[in-house]
Write a protein that binds this DNA or RNA. Structure first.
Lengths: 143, 143
DNA sequence: TTCATTGCAAAGTTTTTGCATCTTT
DNA sequence: AAAGATGCAAAAACTTTGCAATGAA
């Protein structure tokens, strides 16, 4: 599921980003991607990250994940249907296997057609809910 | 449930925005708020909308709703627990009464504590799913 | 009269775009 | 050599902030 044809040329930058998504344990945002990519390769600009992410998204190799605070991150598409848990303290996003959603189409107004759904659970991850260390919730830049 | 104390002064701009939220059938974004408010009152700047929204959110009179594309809108807090349906064609957000979510805490890693959840259904609203008019999906500014 | 609030414009942020240069094919 | 892709810097788009003027109490 790698080395997918998208765009026309195989560049180092593109390969690195694809590899990063393939190995990522969860969704990644623009800044994170830039940092990870720059660690591998010296030269890569933020514009390339944005352009590549758009390309990967259009070719369906990755898909967008919207966090409760509005930030958009992306993750490899080859993970089955799943949802996300966002820790309100450390803002870490964790994949969540089960799908506790059962849409009762009858509870929607007439004529509405549900094609997909997005669920995000918010709370405290195992680290942050540990009674011992109660670090103060921190907001990242945005908002 | 109006005329709530927040900030210190009761200004015309504040009242208008509170009224707009009270009457709104669904969540509203910044631009929409500005338009609606300007229709009522001549003078009101975008900065005031941002400042007032923050105030209303802090005082819990309204709460934020994040759409799949990352846009944040707000709605009055005095609507019970519910979720949203976003039409992918016209981008209209519709309130959705039922809650088809049943969180099986056992499907989460040990130690995780779920405090809340956000669910968004995406599809076509009754208008857009009507076979007759198939208007082209349009993106609003962002992204 | 006092001081919270507003509008406007400037300053920040984040994302997109133009373009000359570099690379893949 | 041709044309896609990149990096950089400029331009957009969106929010926040500083400040003098306004208006609620």
């Amino acid at each position: 599921m790698n080395t997918v044809k998208l765009g026309q040329r195989n560049t180092r930058q593109r390969e690195i980003l694809q590899q990063i998504f393939a190995q990522a344990p969860g969704p990644l945002g623009v800044k994170r991607l830039l940092d990870l990519a720059q660690a591998e390769i010296g030269k890569i600009g933020i514009a390339t990250v944005y352009r590549t992410v758009r390309l990967l998204e259009e070719s369906k190799e990755i898909r967008p994940v919207t966090l409760p605070d509005g930030e958009i991150q992306w993750e490899s598409s080859d993970r089955g249907h799943h949802h996300h848990f966002v820790c309100r303290a450390c803002t870490t996003v964790t994949d969540f296997a089960g799908c506790p959603v059962h849409v009762h189409t009858d509870s929607l107004p007439q004529g509405f057609c549900v094609e997909s759904h997005e669920l995000t659970l918010v709370g405290l991850c195992s680290k942050c809910s540990a009674p011992a260390s109660s670090k103060a919730p921190a907001r990242k830049g945005k908002r």
